[in-house]
Nucleic acid binder design. Structure first.
Length: 606
DNA sequence: CGGCGAAGCG
């Protein structure tokens, strides 16, 4: 008792002293020692103690084994776990429910899902914990359907089982189902746990339901768990996601024992509210950082298109010795794609290879996309071909990459290959690429065929973009009447781009009549819609009608609209320098102009 | 003395 008493407060040195001094060690005191080490994060020492227990001749019991398996989970050593399993069988504990429960968890943490299922299947009696463990396995595998089936069929459910499915629905974006289950759980008279409250708070923050979030806030306050780090971190997240960093800050400041997650929640709050400077300041002053913190700050810069900062901070991260997460790599890769920096992309590809992350579907997809967007379609294809597993996103980026790089035929045949060889269903993005590909290699009738099949065959209702693409396709090939008809038959307002595409077709094929009608439509459209105004001004500009251009620009100013500013960048010695056409410009603008002036006078000199 | 759950996100 004394031992576990000290262990509880992290004073394991003292407790071990008592343990060693105790001449009458029995299985309970040994087990207490092992689990004490575990609770304080010293699983390896716990395992060494277990070996000493075996040497001493004391027989371990079922409690010892459950603790030892937990230690194996911590160390992540599968072989070790298997040796312990051997011992369990030898000592006849293989039918003990608790031991089996911990074995299931061990197997699923080692991602040995088949083995976990075998352990579960051979159990004669199972309790709610066994069922929850196997439920968790399907949750972990991402098989939400099977998880739900298990959940519905479980003979008994406890608050942990509910938590597991609710969390999964929340994470996979089905917030409404998560909320529904939460309500059902409460109705069935179960008291949501701390983790369940924190999970439902994050669900509410994802759907930005501030009112319901406030209600939960009031409730957790009433039952006295407001101060829990999980709860309070979720609250910080809730208020920040709803755009209120001030309230988020208030909660954050009130957290007594902040951990890295609370710090990250607040950091994310600044990042997502476009307060990148505050975020950076906060980040620089954080007492604890994890690779997640780096990921958040980098993600914030990506979101705000501050691409130079992305690389700057990413380099800093690598120098600090922190290993980027897959998410961080994918943010940085998307930045490489945005600025079409092949060199940087290749560099990062190398780093990913070194870490062995290239087997990851997610990163493989990000690499495929980066190469395609940077113009290196060969490498893009190579990465894609080597991926051992491909999901919907992987196929989408490759089909899109080929279509947009001008390899229309390859894009179309890859689409056919996907339908043949994979279980991935065509989505709206792929179909858009397919239409784009048809449009760009003049396969108008084939394109129309795909367009017609979208809803009937692929179950995808054509959206504005699809219509625009087909209008563009028809206009490019001179089928102006069909294009105009399509615009008139659309079930919604056409995009300004569709009108512009038809207009440019009219210009190419010299059709004054349709041009006049379309221009009038675009004009009407522009009165309500800023995108129309921007396009209209571009069309006037290309026709050299400068008076009209200046009228439209004036209208835009009156409406407080701004054409998004131009941006350019240059890479010098591993650093990306951005230049903006309007405000912000560059901090060394004056110096740059001075040097330009100097260069100019040099050139002018005889 | 023990076994099931938990935060950042494309």
């Amino acid at each position: 008792m004394l031992i576990s008493g000290f262990m509880k407060y992290g004073r394991w040195e003292e407790s071990m002293w008592y343990f060693e001094m105790n001449p009458f060690k029995n299985v309970v005191s040994w087990t207490a020692g092992i689990s004490g080490f575990l609770k304080n994060g010293f699983s390896f020492r716990g395992l060494k103690l277990f070996l000493r227990l075996l040497e001493s001749g004391v027989k371990p019991n079922q409690v010892t084994f459950t603790s030892v398996i937990s230690a194996c989970i911590e160390t992540g050593d599968f072989e070790l776990g298997m040796s312990v399993l051997g011992l369990i069988v030898k000592t006849g504990f293989e039918d003990n429910v608790s031991v089996c429960n911990s074995l299931i968890t061990f197997c699923l943490r080692m991602r040995e899902f088949d083995l976990a299922r075998r352990v579960f299947d051979r159990m004669e009696t199972r309790d709610v914990i066994s069922w929850t463990a196997i439920l968790d396995m399907y949750v972990e595998m991402g098989d939400l359907g099977e998880a739900r089936r298990i959940f519905d069929e479980m003979p008994e459910r406890n608050e942990v089982s509910w938590s597991a499915v609710i969390a999964r629905y929340s994470q996979s974006g089905d917030h409404l189902e998560a909320l529904k289950l939460f309500r059902q759980m409460v109705q069935e008279g179960l008291r949501p746990t701390v983790s369940c409250f924190s999970c439902i708070l994050s669900t509410l923050s994802n759907v930005k339901n501030l009112q319901a979030g406030r209600n939960i806030h009031a409730h957790v306050k009433k039952i006295g768990i407001e101060g829990d780090v999980f709860i309070s971190s979720s609250l910080v997240d809730l208020y920040c996601k709803c755009g209120d960093t001030k309230d988020g800050q208030f909660i954050f400041n009130s957290i007594k024992k902040k951990n890295v997650v609370s710090w990250n929640a607040m950091l994310g709050g600044y990042s997502m509210n476009r307060q990148t400077d505050e975020a950076k300041y906060f980040f620089d002053n954080m007492p604890t950082r994890s690779n997640v913190s780096w990921g958040i700050i980098i993600g914030g810069y990506v979101e705000n298109k501050q691409f130079d900062k992305v690389f700057e901070v990413f380099n800093e991260m690598l120098l600090s010795g922190e290993t980027p997460t897959k998410l961080t790599f994918s943010s940085v890769l998307s930045t490489c794609a945005s600025v079409a920096s092949l060199e940087k992309g290749k560099d990062i590809h190398g780093k990913i290879l070194k870490l062995g992350f290239h087997y990851d579907v997610y990163l493989g997809t990000a690499l495929t996309d980066m190469y395609a967007k940077s113009g290196d379609i060969e490498s893009s294809k190579q990465v894609f071909d080597r991926m051992s597993e491909r999901n919907e996103f992987s196929w989408t980026v490759m089909i899109q990459g080929l279509a947009e790089s001008g390899f229309a035929e390859d894009s179309l045949s890859l689409f056919e290959e996907m339908k043949r060889s994979s279980s991935v269903a065509p989505n709206e993005f792929m179909l858009l690429s397919v239409l784009f590909a048809c449009s760009h290699c003049g396969l108008v009738d084939k394109g129309l065929e795909f367009f017609g099949a979208m809803e009937s065959v692929y179950g995808q209702k054509p959206k504005e973009r699809h219509y625009t693409c087909v209008v563009d396709m028809l206009s490019r090939s001179g089928r102006l009447h069909e294009a105009e008809e399509l615009i008139n038959s659309m079930p919604f307002q056409p995009e300004a781009n569709a009108l512009a595409a038809l207009l440019s077709g009219c210009k190419t094929y010299k059709n004054e009549e349709i041009a006049v009608r379309t221009a009038r439509k675009l004009g009407e459209f522009a009165e309500k819609n800023s995108a129309g105004l921007v396009l209209l001004s571009n069309i006037y500009a290309s026709a050299g009608r400068w008076v009209d251009v200046s009228n439209v620009r004036k209208l835009m100013r009156e409406k407080g609209l701004k054409k998004s500013g131009g941006c350019s960048w240059v890479e010098v010695r591993n650093h990306l320098y951005s230049f903006y056409s309007e405000d912000g410009a560059h901090s060394k603008l004056a110096e740059i102009y001075d040097i330009l002036e100097l260069l100019r006078s040099e050139m002018m000199a005889p």
